[in-house]
């Protein structure tokens, strides 16, 4: 594996990942991942289905803790703190590192309550209305919903629901947002809106996005990590990081032939 980040030393690190493997019981889903991710950048994870992108991204905010028998080995440093240190409270981790899921999952409550829930949980109850407006504006949803904030969030369209989920995530002012295929359930127009949104959000947040869409990865990200699966001795397939570099290099001049094959659509 080759990482070509030597020129980017001056950038602040958000995540420093060293030799991370994640397993479910005795099955190793992804192994030996080492990479650095940078502040106020968009890092994209690409790779064929089952290579462990979701598994890996979930270990960045300790959502894997919620999956019985999932185990993370190795070191994930977040701004200098080992996320898996015994002292670290996963609840606090998730307050700093937000997550947007593949399928929009608004709470069956009003639009306003979808935002205020997280605010209340995080004791950010001053200026609730302003915070709601700010979050919805940042998520490019304010104009569409400002007149019916008390409407049930489930009555929104899929794209609106996903932007609401982004809004409730940024409302609690995390430093980093993890997005696992946030556009896979959306049409091209809604997708475009969310991509534009990411370009604005990246000024304030660090973003990590999993996507199946090569164009999306090349359009939105500054850095790109390509994963693939390799068969292990027992016939199961374990994910590995193949190449990690800045997006432009990866899409114009990948250093690994596997990457080139995948990007050009000859595999995967």
């Amino acid at each position: 594996m080759k990482t070509e980040l030597t020129t980017k030393k001056e950038l602040d690190h958000v995540f420093t990942v060293r030799d991370v493997s994640v397993s479910y019981g005795d099955f190793t889903a992804v192994k030996n991942v080492s990479m650095d991710m940078f502040k106020n950048n968009i890092t994209a994870f690409i790779g064929p289905s089952g290579c462990g992108k979701s598994t890996l991204i979930r270990s960045f905010n300790r959502m894997n803790d919620l999956i019985p028998n999932a185990a993370v080995n190795g070191e994930i440093n977040y701004q200098g703190i080992n996320l898996y240190d015994e002292e670290v409270d996963p609840v606090q981790v998730r307050r700093r590192i937000g997550m947007v899921f593949q399928k929009p999952n608004p709470f069956p409550k009003s639009i306003r309550e979808n935002i205020t829930f997280g605010l209340k949980v995080n004791n950010m109850t001053d200026n609730l209305d302003d915070r709601v407006e700010k979050a919805l504006t940042q998520a490019a949803l304010w104009d569409e919903v400002k007149n019916d904030l008390d409407k049930n969030a489930l009555d929104l369209s899929g794209g609106q629901q996903q932007r609401l989920c982004i809004a409730r995530t940024i409302a609690v002012e995390p430093d980093t947002i993890l997005m696992d295929e946030p556009c896979s359930a959306l049409d091209p127009v809604a997708t475009k809106k969310i991509e534009d949104l990411m370009q604005i959000l990246v000024k304030d947040f660090s973003i990590l996005i999993v996507t199946h869409n090569m164009q999306q990865a090349s359009r939105v990200s500054n850095y790109c990590a390509f994963f693939t699966t390799k068969a292990t001795d027992d016939g199961r397939r374990t994910g590995e990081l193949v190449e990690y570099s800045d997006t432009k290099t990866m899409f114009t001049n990948p250093s690994e032939s596997l990457t080139e094959e995948y990007i050009s659509g000859r595999f995967g």
């Binding site: 997550m99 899921f101 999952n105 709470f107 829930f117 949980v121 609690v172």
Partner: peptide
């Protein structure tokens, strides 16, 4: 209740 709701809530830092 869809598990995704539980995940969504926990991901916001709730207990």
């Amino acid at each position: 209740v869809p598990k995704s709701l539980r995940m969504g809530s926990l991901a916001l830092g709730s207990t």
